[in-house]
Computed example of a mutant assay.
Amino acid sequence: MVCPLLLCFDSAESFLKAWRSDMQGCIVLDVRMPEMSGLELQEKLDSLGSQLPVIFVTGHGDVPMAVSALQRGACDFIEKPFHNEDLLSRIQRALELDNQLSARRQRDGAISHRLDQLTQREREVMQLVVAGKLNKQIADELNISMKTVEAHRARVMEKMGVRTLAELVKAVMTVN
């Protein structure tokens, strides 16, 4: 098992100075921190588009605070005192969640890149194919021949890296 890198920061501000949009892992925040609370940092990270899972720890929490943090996207909320094993297992779950989200972002990025490679006409044909139109219907709607539709459709499938209509629909639905 590879041990993940552990970074510690003395304040929310120092973390924000080091934060990068491509960071992976999870963040463990105390609700009460000097200068900027954990909840304020979570809000700031949300505004920056961070997708890092957040775990809150607190000795001063209450149900409304926990609900608020979770509604804003925190993946967990744990009250002090807690067992180290409990925190470690929650961190492990958060890291697994981050790995899943990272894989999804990479997949979506790859699909978006492939979509960007389509010509305007290929994109039009693809949208009609995904909408369930037959080649003849697409040809009539775009005022092109069926052979041209077939050629565009074949190029769409090739550029998108899919073999079946179901795979194409799944790819398009993933990024929409």
Rank of each mutant, 00 (worst) to 15 (best):
M1D: 04
M1T: 03
V2S: 06
V2D: 06
C3N: 08
P4Q: 07
D10E: 14
E13M: 07
F15H: 04
F15Y: 14
F15A: 01
L16K: 00
L16N: 01
L16S: 01
W19V: 00
S21M: 07
D22S: 13
D30W: 02
V31L: 11
M33F: 01
M33E: 02
E35M: 11
E35A: 13
M36H: 01
M36F: 08
S37P: 03
S37N: 01
G38C: 09
L39W: 02
Q42E: 06
E43P: 00
L45C: 06
D46P: 03
L48T: 09
Q51G: 07
Q51R: 09
P53A: 04
P53K: 03
V54S: 00
G59L: 03
H60C: 09
G61V: 04
D62G: 07
D62R: 05
M65E: 07
M65W: 00
A66S: 09
V67E: 14
A69L: 02
L70E: 07
Q71M: 11
Q71E: 15
G73L: 01
G73P: 08
C75T: 14
C75M: 09
D76F: 02
F77G: 02
F77I: 00
I78H: 01
E79K: 07
F82L: 13
N84H: 12
N84S: 10
D86A: 15
D86E: 15
L87S: 08
L88M: 13
S89W: 11
S89T: 08
S89K: 10
R90H: 11
R90L: 03
Q92N: 07
E96Y: 11
D98K: 03
D98F: 02
N99K: 12
Q100T: 00
L101Q: 13
S102W: 10
A103L: 10
R104M: 09
R105T: 07
R105Q: 12
D108P: 00
G109F: 05
A110R: 09
I111T: 04
S112K: 15
S112Q: 15
S112T: 10
H113G: 06
D116Q: 11
Q117M: 13
Q120C: 06
E122S: 12
M126H: 06
V129D: 01
V129M: 14
A131T: 08
A131K: 15
N135W: 06
Q137P: 00
I138E: 01
E141Q: 15
E141R: 14
N143S: 15
S145M: 07
K147W: 13
V149T: 05
A151M: 11
V156L: 04
V156F: 08
K159E: 04
M160C: 10
M160H: 03
M160W: 05
V162Q: 07
R163T: 10
T164M: 12
L165K: 15
A166L: 13
V169G: 04
M173W: 11
T174A: 13
V175M: 09
